[in-house]
Write a protein that binds this DNA or RNA. Structure first.
Lengths: 230, 230
DNA sequence: CACCCTCTCCACCTTTTGGGGGAGGTCAGA
DNA sequence: TCTGACCTCCCCCAAAAGGTGGAGAGGGTG
């Protein structure tokens, strides 16, 4: 049985969604909330599997509430079972979508969704998947393809480098100095200079700073996940 | 009426999908193909709105065929009306997904999808949206959130910089030398050195290469869109 | 075998970079 | 008005980086 919580400041809308979901044999609406603050408290008490969250609400908006609820879970980890959030809103400006995904939402659907699709979304998300409104998926793909796309022609230039040279380039893209690279690769400092020189000349770059740019642009290095604790 | 083409090397599978779709009143299967090469030719001749494309096929795989078909359209632009591709496969390794999105696919669904959902996917994509298998959407979101997320705390460090220093940092992240930055900002080379020094010291970085890394990690610079034509 | 590529290292040199001061100017706010 | 933050520029100096040329060792290939 899927335990669902519905959060929306309009009681009528809230009841509507709750009724649709409660009508399903495998879904049970265990809580409702009208503000972000209430949502956080109710989530703690009722431990729902899925939260349907509106964005525009008094006291605290749904994105902030989502972030806090999911953050709490990260900390608790062992205790609370994973709860997942579907953002349910009337609008879909990019800013909302990005913030929602950043907050950790697993879904972002518009309120004009057909009831069966909403039920489907709940089941999908409960099952470990994610569900976005079709237009949003489209935009997400576009953004993604853009990032992937550019690397294409650049990545081909990487082929001209030898294995060792690519390793050196990766190290440069990590912010390492020649001495550090030497240590990391167990080779002499002079050797590193040789490799760096050929990397720069083969790729048509001038200095290591440009090499770092190149590495990021072609996908050898990617933003995210790195500690910039130099 | 949606004109659909089905591409799969297994005739049985192909007919199955075609029958399901043809059964819908607003969908018409106008062509079938068994290889990537056939698909390209058939797409040219029959001008379908939607192509359901398998990946593993003899002669040319579905990803390559997708890329070529969509590329041709980009060139033609005015002539051919936009055609959109849904990748339909049994497997979903990340590599396939990325390549598919890069090729320009608007959908990526698994063959175990229920028939109604397939029909729904076709209509959604024809309508300008995109449809991914739930698990894939999930992974895409994770990747996206990761990219968005990390910049957060780092971006705060940017606040310590003055406006001019941020400009200089951006220029560094562009691969510019001090002399080039001076020229770009209409200031003396000595001034640039001053700014660079304070940027490095304020951010706790050692050299400009690390500054480039920082700029990418915190989102001041982003991969994609830049010409690396130093 | 000779040949080519790669990886390893060395020496010498020039340029760039980064750190340490100092100094004058503007401009906003206490 | 004075202080502080910011931008601008200067000098000197040490360290790092980058270019050039050379050289030996190992591994493949024709």
């Amino acid at each position: 049985m899927l335990r669902v919580m519905v959060v929306d400041d309009q009681a009528l809308v809230r009841r509507g969604f709750a009724l649709v979901l409660d009508n399903e044999p495998d879904i049970e609406v265990v809580a409702e909330a009208g503000t972000g603050v209430e949502a956080i408290e109710a989530a703690r008490v009722h431990q729902p599997d899925i939260i349907l969250m509106d964005i525009r609400m008094p006291e605290m908006d749904g994105l902030e509430a989502t972030a806090r609820i999911l953050q709490t879970q990260e900390r608790a980890e062992a205790g609370d079972k994973a709860c997942r959030v579907i953002i349910l809103t009337t609008f879909d400006p990019d800013e909302y979508v990005f913030r929602a995904l950043q907050a950790g939402a697993s879904g972002f659907v518009l309120k004009d969704i057909p009831p069966e699709a909403l039920v489907e979304a709940v089941r999908t998300v409960a099952d470990g998947g994610a569900m976005l409104a079709p237009g949003i998926t489209q935009r997400l793909i576009s953004q993604f393809a853009q990032k992937l796309g550019t690397g294409r022609n650049l990545a081909e230039r990487l082929d001209r480098l030898t294995t060792r040279e690519r390793e050196v380039l990766a190290a440069i893209a990590d912010g390492k100095s020649n001495a550090e690279i030497a240590e990391a690769l167990f080779i002499g400092a002079a050797t590193v200079k040789t490799h760096v020189s050929s990397v720069l000349s083969k790729l048509g770059l001038r200095d290591r700073a440009q090499a770092v740019v190149f590495a990021y642009e072609c996908g050898l290095a990617t933003a995210g996940g790195r500690d910039v604790g130099f």
